[in-house]
Simulated scan of single mutants.
Amino acid sequence: MLGFLFFCPFLCCVPMLQISCSENTTVLQLSVPEDHRLCLWCGGSDTSDVVWTHQDRTVLVTRQKNYETNQDRTRFQLKPDASLCLLRLDDADAGTFRCNDRLVTELEVLTGQDFRVSAGRTLLLPCRRSDKPKQRWFQRREGGKREPILTRFKNATVKPERHDPRLSYQHDALQILQLQPGDAGEYLCNGELEATVVVLTQSLSVPTAPPAVTGAVTVEKTKTDKTPETVSVLVLVAVVSSAGLLLIGGVTCIVLSSLKCRRKKKHRPTGGRRRGDAELQLWTSSSTAQGERHVEAINSGGRSLRRRGRRVGCSAPAERDPPLRLTGPTQLEGASGQNRAGSAAAQCDLLVCAY
């Protein structure tokens, strides 16, 4: 028992036994490229009753004694040791996986060839561009040369070429535990570029030097002092702009009003005169025409009476009145109306006597 307790911390450094030592071990955070095959170990001793869930909701596979259920046999496989194998990773597989309500793995699915992975995670890089059973892995940092990492032979034996316990070959891929900034760079398998890795780190450092803090405070004060000036300038510009707009609007209104008044004064009298002249001309012309018709009727009547008097033997008037002539709308020049009426009556009497 004491020997087991002594060697257990050492065994926990081995990836496949990382979760088996204790149920309180830190959850394995995996970053794996898409289309890769990945198996997750449940870690419990009882393999007869198993329930695998994804994202705390979806039940993927279950086993109760000899009865098994599988949501999609083309994607998931439950092994005899209760391990869950994801046959081909895709974006939908990202998230947390639990075995019998115990959190086992938090999975990140990588796409493309340029990977941005947070520091501290476990990265798997499969050799996808070479079909050779023998794999030799290299790392090339920015501006540096290729550095060998390890070699996997045909018989599945692995020869490390760098003294780093974080580097191994697991899950049919190059495995890097506890990713660090020094792991960034290009990774090649059999001379073919497999991935370019960028390690993301969180900046947790806090400046402690007093000058830096003083400078920060000074900058903030300067910005605070400039803020009211900027606001006052903006307010002044807004006020001047508003006053200019009001002035332009007032001048425009005055000019338009004056033009409108001038047009009204110019057109109103002219229209009145033209209308009065038209009415006067119409009245004068109608009155003149009517008077001319009356005068012509009177003159023609007198001539016809004289002709009839001659026929019946009546004597014509001794003095012949001159014909009437129209001099105005309501005045007749010549014999008055009464004389004309008397002469016409005398001529009519003569005609009656003759008949």
Rank of each mutant, 00 (worst) to 15 (best):
V109T: 03
L246Y: 13
V312W: 04
V32W: 02
I149P: 01
H267L: 15
L87G: 05
C127F: 04
K226L: 15
R141P: 09
D164M: 03
E106Y: 06
C8P: 01
P126M: 04
E220W: 12
C348K: 03
R275P: 02
C127K: 00
Q139L: 10
R75P: 01
N155H: 12
V27W: 06
D277E: 14
D56Q: 13
K65Q: 13
R141D: 11
R75E: 08
L86V: 05
R88G: 12
L305R: 08
A297L: 14
T196P: 00
R325D: 04
K134W: 13
S286E: 07
E106V: 02
S45T: 06
L103C: 06
R320K: 06
L177C: 11
E34C: 07
L89M: 10
C189A: 11
R63H: 02
R340Y: 07
P126S: 02
E34D: 13
Q175C: 09
G271P: 02
K264I: 12
L150C: 05
A212P: 00
E147Q: 09
A243V: 15
V235E: 14
G328P: 00
S336G: 04
G112S: 04
G144A: 14
R136M: 15
G249H: 09
C8Y: 11
T208G: 11
S205C: 07
G143Y: 03
